[in-house]
């Protein structure tokens, strides 16, 4: 199910950028996460100093939990940093994030293969 969702999102984002070491973004969600951080910074939600401190903290925690931290998991830390900062800044609580994650999960489950996944009020029930 996750794979199907990822594959469908991939179709929405043409041409993942590459350099000689391979794709700069390994999956489309990494590009989305990257862009969200830039957009929120531009909105003044956080400073780059706050961002770097939080990201460094996330990486340290992941390492402590056994993450090999070889660059492949980098955007996972990036995403955790986003979630931490939006919660700290009162933009979205962890509970709200959970609710929306479950709703997207539900929407992906009920959507037939090949059709775009859309969120409806029923997905929150």
């Amino acid at each position: 199910m996750m794979d199907a969702a990822a594959a469908r999102a991939a179709a929405d984002v043409p041409g993942i950028p590459r350099d000689k070491d391979g794709p700069v973004f390994r999956e489309p969600w990494e590009a989305q996460a990257f862009a969200m951080a830039l957009a929120l910074h531009e909105r003044g939600v956080f400073t780059w100093a706050e961002w770097a401190a939080t990201l460094a903290d996330q990486i340290k925690r992941a390492q402590a939990d056994g993450d090999p931290d070889t660059g492949e998991t980098y955007y996972r830390h990036w995403m955790a940093t986003l979630e931490t900062l939006v919660a700290a800044k009162g933009v979205a609580t962890p509970e709200l994030l959970h609710r929306y994650r479950d709703a997207w999960d539900h929407a992906a489950d009920r959507t037939p293969h090949g059709a775009p996944i859309e969120l409806t009020p029923q997905d929150f029930e």
């Binding site: 990822a6 999102a9 969200m36 996972r76 995403m79 979205a92 994030l97 969120l119």
Partner: peptide, 13 residues
């Protein structure tokens, strides 16, 4: 991860 990203993007939008 995909779902987490979608969730956050929807909320922020």
């Amino acid at each position: 991860m995909e779902l987490r990203v979608r969730a956050l993007e929807t909320i922020l939008t």
